[in-house]
Structure formats: C-alpha cells, structure tokens
Nucleic acid binder design. Structure first.
Lengths: 201, 201
DNA sequence: CCCGCTCTGGAATGATCGTTCCAGAGACAA
DNA sequence: TTGTCTCTGGAACGATCATTCCAGAGCGGG
C-alpha cells in the first residue's frame, strides 16, 4: 500500500501553470513539447508520466485556468458588496490585465478561437466555463437591476452574453500591440453605456 | 515582351478564396499545404509558383479578407441611409452570419487570437484592418449622435473600440456549438444598450 | 512545327513533430 | 543494503511538415 521509492520532487501545480502559460501565449499547435519541457523545468519523460500526452496536458491546463482565472472572476461577481460595484470591479480588473505590455489575452478566448468542433471534450469544457461566466454575470445583473442600480430594460441573460462577448473581444484587443490605448477605451465605453459611473481615482 | 506559352488556367481569386476558407476554419498552423492544395483545386507546384510560401499565402489571404469582408462592412457604415440604420444593419448582418450552424467566426479575429507579436507584417496588417473598422464605426456613431439618433454622452472613438470588441467577441461565440442562441442574444442586448429599436420583422 | 510557358504529380530532402524506449543516477522505505 | 519508485536526458521511431527538384503533358504564339 504505502508506496516505496523516490517521491515526486517537482511542484506539479507550478509545472502545470508553466505549461498553461506556454499554451496561453502560443496556442495549442504552436506550442511544442520541447518548449513545454523547458518552461516547466522538468524532464520530458516526467511530463508524459505525470500529464499524459500533449492534448491531455492542454485539457488539464485549460481546466486549471477555469479553476483559477475564471473562478476568481466568478468570486468577484457573486461576492459581497453592491452588485453594481462587483460588475465594475470585473471590468476594471480586465482593463488592468489586458492593457499591460506583454499581455497574452485570455486563455479561454484563445481556446475558443482555435476550437476544433470535432473535439468534444475541449468543446464541453469551454462551453461549461463560458456558461458559468454568463450565469454569474446574469445573476449580478439581475441583482443590480432589482437594486435600481442598473437600467432594467434589458434582459439579464442577454446582457450577460453580451458582456462576456465584450470581455472576449477586449481579450483579443489585448493581444494587439495597441492594447494599452484600446482596451481602457473599450472598458470606459462599456461602463458608460451601462450607466455605471467611473470613479475619479 | 508578349509572353508566349500556356496561359494560367485557374482562377487565381477563386483559389485564394479557397485558401482563405481553410486558414479561416483551421488557423495558420493547423492548415497544411496538402489541405490547401486540395481545397484550392490546383497542383502543389502551382501554389508555390503563384503565391510563394505558406506564410505569404496566409498574408495574401488575410489581405484579401480585408478587401472583401471588412470592406463590405465599411461600405455599410459609410454608405447612404440614416446613420442609425447603418449601425443596426451591421449588427443584424453579424447576427445572421455568426449564428449559422457551420459558422467559422471572423478571420481577422482568428488572426488576432493567434497573433505572433514578432511577426511585424501580420501585426501591421491586422492593426490596419482593425483601425479602419474602428474609424468607420466612430464616424457613423458621430453622425448618429449629431442627428440625435444616438445618446451623445459617450465618446464616439471609445464607443467604436467597444463595438468592434463586441464584434470580435461575438465572432468567438460564433465558433462555439451554442452560437445559434448566444449570438442573437448578444446582438439584441447590444442594440438595446445603444437604444436602437429592434424592428419587429 | 517548335519554343516557351504553364499545368500536374511523384519523389526526395531536411526539419520538426509527438512519442516511446532505455540506461543511469537519485531518493526514500523496509 | 536492497528494492522500488522517481528523476533526467540521449537515442530512436514513425509521422508529418514545408519545400524543392524533376519529368511528363497541355496549350498558345512565333
């Protein structure tokens, strides 16, 4: 029962995060095993032993992204505070992340952009992540509307779809060289359109 | 001077469009020369003779997309008719295109998603196309605002950035299996947010 | 007719890919 | 120490990749 022998010596999570960064920056096809091995700081054989093949590693990395980045956005949306403040916080955070010089966009948006519709597993995972985002947005929107903090002439579910689309679109813009100016502008316009006042900080 | 010999026998534009479709659907890396040759309906050697190597072909296809799809959107935005109607027409058209079952999203959005920031030529081309779209949007928005057809409390340039982001986001959503429901919902919310009445057709 | 251009497709090249096999070294339990 | 598991990295495999060379055939102008 008790496993004898040398124990695993590298941080599995750290390695996965390094792999995620490579896939994130270069996409699935363009990321080579050699690159992944170097970035993860482990041997090639350890990679195959621990994570299986390339596609499985990609899937695991995508799932990890969902449990980290997406989940943190979900936490903000469903967290404490006024609903309207939570919505604004999400966009402020996006603006900050997507406007930095070496921004890589959004991993999920990238996965969506090169989605192979024949790959059922990836499709299902992406769909699940996206749906959870939309649901969280819709809930926060509905709360903000009942609290009279947001115009209530728009269906929360449809507005939620539209706001995630904005997020993905800004994530694409974040990959372009001009991201430092475009992304904040897009966020400002979005908040203005929603009637969310921008604090003078 | 006058060139003797067998004349080129295939339609160069049609071949380019077929290549564009392949790149569009699968992305740059995943599209192989064999696939391109088959789709274009020409011999392998003819491809290299006419279009150069793979990257050049990709660049040409992207440029062609700019001269076709992007330009047609530009025509709508700068065309005749009330400014507000032109804006609505663009989104209606997007909704229709992105909601069809075998939708491939937007070629430029795909190019953006897997953009290699070290490739100056592709970056420049993408940036040019995107900028022309933003400018056309901004002009139409400004016109609609002066004509009192659109709320004028938002900067046209920033709103234009945001609307192209929506377009790209919807193009990503268009690649997902659930596009038939999400895309129209997103468009409806966008038009509602802008205060553009949806005709009951 | 023949020359110059095009077309096509098989064959070969060299590179890179993902993946597996293997041998040696390291680390812990019994 | 011995055994068992892990680590690493070299070597090899087969597949696929983009690209080039080449030989044969098609077509039009001189």
């Amino acid at each position: 029962m008790c496993p004898a022998g040398r124990p695993k010596s590298f941080d599995q999570t750290a390695a996965l995060e390094a792999a995620m960064a490579v896939f994130w920056a270069k996409g699935y096809e363009a990321a080579s095993i050699a690159e992944l091995v170097t970035a993860m700081g482990i041997g090639r054989q350890s990679l195959y032993d621990t994570f299986g093949d390339k596609r499985t590693l990609y899937l695991t990395a995508l799932r990890h992204y969902g449990e980290r980045a997406v989940a943190s956005t979900l936490d903000v949306l469903t967290g404490p505070g006024e609903p309207i403040d939570r919505l604004r916080a999400v966009f402020d955070n996006w603006a900050e992340v997507q406007a930095c010089p070496d921004c890589k966009g959004c991993f999920m948006a990238g996965a969506l952009a090169q989605l192979d519709r024949n790959d059922a597993e990836v499709c299902a995972l992406v769909d699940e992540l996206q749906q959870s985002l939309i649901d969280a947005f819709a809930a926060a929107i509905a709360q903000a509307q009942s609290a009279q903090q947001l115009r209530d002439d728009i269906d929360p579910a449809e507005l939620a779809v539209m706001l995630t689309a904005v997020g993905h679109g800004l994530a694409l813009a974040g990959r372009a060289p001009s991201n430092a100016t475009t992304v904040p502008a897009g966020v400002r316009a979005t908040l203005a359109l929603l009637g969310i006042p921008v604090p003078t900080h």
